[in-house]
Design a protein around this nucleic acid. Structure first.
Lengths: 145, 145
DNA sequence: TAATATAGTTAGCTGTTCCTAACTTGTCAA
DNA sequence: TTGACAAGTTAGGAACAGCTAACTATATTA
């Protein structure tokens, strides 16, 4: 409980998966977590125990998994980073949705509180500029990208 | 030797450190690798063995560490990703050099061949635009960032 | 309600990445 | 040349992240 230490990428992934499942189905089941992360059920049990030790998840054997308040905040933060990065990839770089999604999944663990707010601001700023996206597309085409 | 598998973030870090040390001092010593990655000398020995098994590094106990041709290519690719990301952070997002460097260190393992070329193109494109950096600065100020 | 299918857990293993402590090897200077 | 210090390695261990196989609990349904 209450270990003040940065979460591993893996733990963040589990937290995010739980967060998304809860958003969709009100509840997160071990099997669905396993499926959404492409991991065995046994691995989920192990990961959940770690999260539980850190006070991020409420869990009793054979029961559903719930985020604690603290876990919910962490998860929401990860999900937000994910969205900001994905949006930047799509709206600014012009990457297609699926690629952007899977790239954001990896990058969300690497970018912190210096980069993320600026990335968000930049995306907002960029989207306000008239025509610039079209200009960039032209630029890319001229370079054969 | 010749294991066709994606390198771990850790292996990429070691490769990059060796690459940078060789660029600077013609030679990479275990102690300097340890120092530049903030890791114990024993960890370096272990990591070097892994890289050697993969044919990325030439190494004899108690000798210097050299990159093989294959290792050199890998290392250069990592270093290039690093530069592209760092440049984007500085030139586009306006993050200061040091922050950009350390953030790029983490992100370089997460961004792949979809995102990196686009990020590079985008940075080039952006730097060609007159005044836009100043506009973004204004935008940030107006939002209190 | 009893049998069975599904979900979850446990045990035990592998591999990675780091550590410290203790040892070996190499180098330099008195 | 040798002895001390620096550099490198080995051994052993911890934490994490995954796996399979075998077990247990829960839920469904005939």
């Amino acid at each position: 409980m209450n270990v003040r230490k940065k979460l591993s990428a893996s733990s963040e992934d589990y937290l995010e998966a739980i967060y998304n499942l809860v958003s969709l189905h009100k509840v997160a089941r071990s099997k669905d977590i396993a499926e959404s992360l492409g991991v065995s059920r046994a691995s989920v049990t192990g990961a959940i125990k770690l999260l539980s030790d850190k006070g991020l998840v409420d869990y009793k054997p054979y029961g559903y998994v719930y985020l604690t308040e603290k876990g919910g905040k962490e998860a929401a933060a990860v999900a937000k980073r994910h969205t900001i990065i994905e949006t930047f990839f799509v709206k600014v770089l012009g990457v297609d949705q699926q690629e952007a999604e899977s790239a954001a999944c990896k990058a969300e663990h690497a970018l912190g509180s210096t980069i993320i707010p600026r990335l968000l601001s930049f995306t907002e700023f960029y989207c306000e500029q008239d025509n610039i996206a079209a200009e960039f597309k032209k630029f890319c085409k001229s370079k054969g990208i």
